[in-house]
Design a protein around this nucleic acid. Structure first.
Lengths: 347, 347
DNA sequence: TTGTAGGCGTTATCAG
DNA sequence: CTGATAACGCCTACAA
């Protein structure tokens, strides 16, 4: 009570309060509890409780040489795609009493690089990068370099949906899902399509686009119209508006490379007096929660996003173990047809 | 090159590589750059770059006695309400080069307590608790106790939407917003209401409920029917289904205490063949992004969630400064009437 | 079972 | 301007 008012209590304080040495206090609170006399152990615990002691994680980290931290990089927390992944990572981390620190790489690659750098300073057990702009091991790819440094220093890296980098990756079957979606839409009677894509640097978008084209190929349908826009709800809205302005007599259905874009597009259509599902089919990708709450309910490709996050964690953790550890996993996707592609256009 | 293959390079390695002392290396990389000869400085920087050195944040934390970490506690990342707040916190933190660590307190108060405890071990500059189950300073409130410990040790606590605890708080004008919503709905011609609430332990729900009742009071309308359910989309769905089953001849409009519940309710209505906006009015609270994408667009009360998060950060940071620092802030809310309460019921 | 002492990677103090 | 050296809070042989 006679020292400074603030600055949290240390192990020394607890030891003094309990009348034992720091070593004993340390052992009683963390090390193998077996080796300390139970009376002392409870004295220490009592002292800790009384003082409101909480071990300094940084001190433990440096003393032990390792942390219980998982670093997660996402592009945007507010995007349901990423928050679902984040939720999965969080849940899996919790099971192992790991702490997840989350960084948001809004847009700029520089920012992204800076983030991974900082993260590296945290000495996390694992770094998980979800949907960033890691594009290929091309020259000047400072990000990959940074991750390589981290891995060399004993860190574990897991990427989500960035299969072309030399790190364990949780992959999503974007291509296959989009291909099956194309098939399903053909089956529903649609023949003439527009595709709403994001810029090709965003690999997820590119894969879905390519998969969709692949599904169409050889079926004698015309080459789809392609409208490039942002990977966001606003992007989708804007693209649909452009489509309406241009005139869409030659388009029966629109495939947006993700659900938020598709939902934005549906709203744009409605705002322009075009009825989605009736006047034009709309399909998305991801099957986010709100896909069933829009009208008409959105046809989409379901992606187990939470599972992907959880899987990434497990993948990272399993790398400790003997060589047998698998180094990547692909999450399956499946088409969910709903009313937004229900009404088959008249021939 | 002759030591173990992994374990990241330390400042010693950099110093050796650059041919200077650790002290100099430290100064060149972090301390006031002015006091080191520019030639040495660049040698050090070069060595650091070559080795891929990254300062050990934990070591810095313990040496400096402080961290650059902000801890954020939310109930669920995947809920747009919390992810919007998180986004705001993240943005504000970024401006001060602070790192956000995010913990998810899914449900159980024990888990929540454990989280704050662990967080305390991180020695963050700030702990922000958003929408947890802190209910009142009643006896046995271990969470408040934990936060008090933290604050005593010099930490800054900011709560979002928990005004009855003795910590700086960013408050949301739930009561006022709900009251004005009630007035607006009365103005639109609705007279007989049902309220979809969450259990009263969730203070946000309680406030909105009470505000709504207050807005109705003295207007000669019947006491609303109250349906208690979960604070989630599923809760809303379920409650609406119950309402339909029960029969809703005496209800013209439904007020759900948040948007995800309202959206769930709308879907339930539709599934039961009841047309929201026409057969029954629906209003929510929060004005989340998807409120404009559902059909009919959802009447709601807009809450500046991102701003609330950012504000919480600033509030925390300003507590450093001289006594004049404000200790709380209230975020305004405003009613947004849309088509879900557009069609005025026949008298 | 317990205490002493050295070390983890940085920063900060204090002589050179 | 630079280099030893003592902290920082904790863990862990090693010795008692």
């Amino acid at each position: 009570m006679h020292d400074g008012p603030n600055s949290p209590p240390t192990l020394h304080d607890v030891a003094r309060e309990a009348g034992v040495s720091v070593a004993t206090a340390s052992r009683a609170l963390n090390g193998s509890t077996r080796n300390v006399r139970s009376e002392n152990a409870s004295r220490v615990r009592a002292a800790a409780a009384k003082l409101g002691y909480q071990p300094h994680l940084s001190a433990q980290a440096i003393a032990r040489g390792s942390t219980r931290t998982v670093a997660l990089v996402v592009r945007d927390v507010a995007d349901p795609y990423f928050s679902a992944i984040a939720a999965g990572v969080g849940r899996a981390a919790e099971a192992d009493r790991l702490i997840v620190t989350m960084a948001v790489a809004e847009g700029s690659p520089e920012r992204e690089l800076e983030i991974v750098r900082t993260l590296r300073g945290q000495r996390p057990r694992v770094i998980i990068v979800a949907g960033s702009r890691v594009d290929g091991a091309g020259t000047g790819d400072a990000l990959a370099e940074e991750l390589r440094h981290y891995r060399t220093a004993g860190g574990r890296v897991v990427l989500i949906s960035q299969p072309d980098l030399p790190f364990p990756t949780v992959t999503i079957d974007n291509r296959g899902g989009a291909e099956r979606l194309a098939t399903a839409l053909l089956g529903a009677g649609y023949r003439r399509f527009a595709v709403l894509t994001a810029p090709p640097e965003i690999r997820t978008s590119r894969e879905r686009h390519e998969g969709f084209l692949a599904g169409l190929r050889g079926c004698g349908v015309p080459e789809p119209l392609v409208i490039e826009t942002g990977f966001t709800r606003e992007g989708g809205y804007e693209a649909a508006r452009r489509l309406v302005t241009r005139g869409f007599e030659d388009v029966e259905a629109v495939f947006a490379v993700n659900d938020v874009m598709a939902i934005g597009a549906m709203t744009a259509f409605r705002d322009a007096g075009v009825v989605p599902g009736a006047d034009i089919g709309v399909a998305g990708f991801d099957d986010i929660a709100s896909a069933v709450d829009v009208v008409p309910a959105l046809t989409s490709v379901a992606v187990p996003l939470r599972e992907a996050g959880a899987r990434a964690m497990r993948l990272a953790l399993s790398q400790d173990e003997t060589a047998g550890a698998e180094s990547s996993a692909e999450m399956p996707t499946h088409v969910v047809l709903r009313d937004s592609t229900h009404v088959r256009p008249a021939p």
